[in-house]
Nucleic acid binder design. Sequence first.
DNA 1: AACAGCGTTCTATAATATTGAACAAAACGA
DNA 2: TCGTTTTGTTCAATATTATAGAACGCTGTT
Lengths: 252, 252
Amino acid sequence: MSKSGYKIKSVVKAMKVLEQFKEKKELGTTDLSKKLDIPKSTMFNILYTFTELGYIQQTKYDKYKLSTKIFELSQSIEYDLRNEAKPYLRKLSEATRETINLVLHMEEKVLYTEKVESQEPININTKIGKKEDIYCTAVGKAILAFLKQDRQEKIFEKITFHSHTPNTITDLEDLKEEIITIKNRGYAVDNEEFARGVKCVAAPIFDYKGDPISAVSITGPAERMDSKGIERLASLVKENAMDISNVLGFGS
Amino acid sequence: MSKSGYKIKSVVKAMKVLEQFKEKKELGTTDLSKKLDIPKSTMFNILYTFTELGYIQQTKYDKYKLSTKIFELSQSIEYDLRNEAKPYLRKLSEATRETINLVLHMEEKVLYTEKVESQEPININTKIGKKEDIYCTAVGKAILAFLKQDRQEKIFEKITFHSHTPNTITDLEDLKEEIITIKNRGYAVDNEEFARGVKCVAAPIFDYKGDPISAVSITGPAERMDSKGIERLASLVKENAMDISNVLGFGS
DNA sequence: AACAGCGTTCTATAATATTGAACAAAACGA
DNA sequence: TCGTTTTGTTCAATATTATAGAACGCTGTT
């Protein structure tokens, strides 16, 4: 375990610059140097370096924006997670006969990464590649509940509640209460909070540090998901999520 | 345009290290130091820096792997492209009544990023978030054809041909010839090379440098796509791809 | 028990990132 | 139209800082 260690200052600075492009897509040398309190000429060197490496590119007139090169990196993670998790998702699908979803945590959103569709006549349509809000999905709440407090609070600040259905949680205090419940029982439920007639049960997937990075869910029509059914499904997702945590090389 | 400029060596080194994780997902300090010919202790500092920043994390025993933080960056690009392109994809869908796909270029693959589905009874099912080979899709070939020669050659080396249908191009020389044709007429055709009964017409989307980074395609059942129909669709995709290039702030 | 391999620590030193000042060119205002 | 301001970029001297060899502790192996 690392105690001592040297943080390379120029690398830290450079990455901070890259991260600026998350919020604003086009930035100039001066903008950036003011925002990060780094001299223009230093900023120019950083931008020049990333441009040469292909991570950012210049727009028509003297601005910079991210290029698609970072994709190459992020894809490899997504690919790994998807493939390692897939057999477990299938197993869960067979056991429950419902649609299974795998999401990745992305700040105040979750990214739908993989799914196995139910073979039942009535099934729920979710889309891979879509991002949904963390507060109104079972997967999102499952992740949120197990995050460390400081990260939770940063996310709370970013949330803007929007009422998808009459059941959607739209109050921060309600969400905080819900999170306590989720943490105690180890799984989250979406009780028609995102879409009418659709219920979900989800459990978090942990990294080696014990932080949630992802989640699995079972999604089905409300008719098939009564409170007793949900309890059964809950223990299945929880177990499955733990298995995935382990296979990713994370679990305790 | 940048002529002179200083490439920050520690940043270049650090990014090279990050990129190593594209190929192998778990790497140790010594592995990396040997592969990149950087002393172990320097490598440790680089890894320590990225770990502290959250871009990589340690696995159970003394190895490192990418964390999901890079996603946050890549998502912002994908999001921009998708949203800026969407109205144009819709317009194309209305004009053609077929399924429209938007992909991103990723080395020897293409990533399906956005689509607008055809309203026709028979339509083609492609999946957002999936990666397909560059040589057997219209979108892939459209991008490949317009890449600079040195990048083309790097990709040629990475391709391993696999016969999806009897029409799939499985020979490098054939692919090179096809590329010349595509470059001359400005669009690519998938003539049931990826899936039986499915044809596509695609055109590349360019960045500000004139390099292709993305592509749009019209996909439909072979019955609806005779040679005359394809010609009409071709001019539509080409025009649409140019419009998107422009709206992204790239176009000439 | 001795060895070989790993990740990590430390520090002196050489290397290198930094930065202010200066420049050209575009954008803006009058 | 002509100054004025602001932009991105260039440069070289200097001080900062990244570097890397050697040593450490640990684990697994022979």
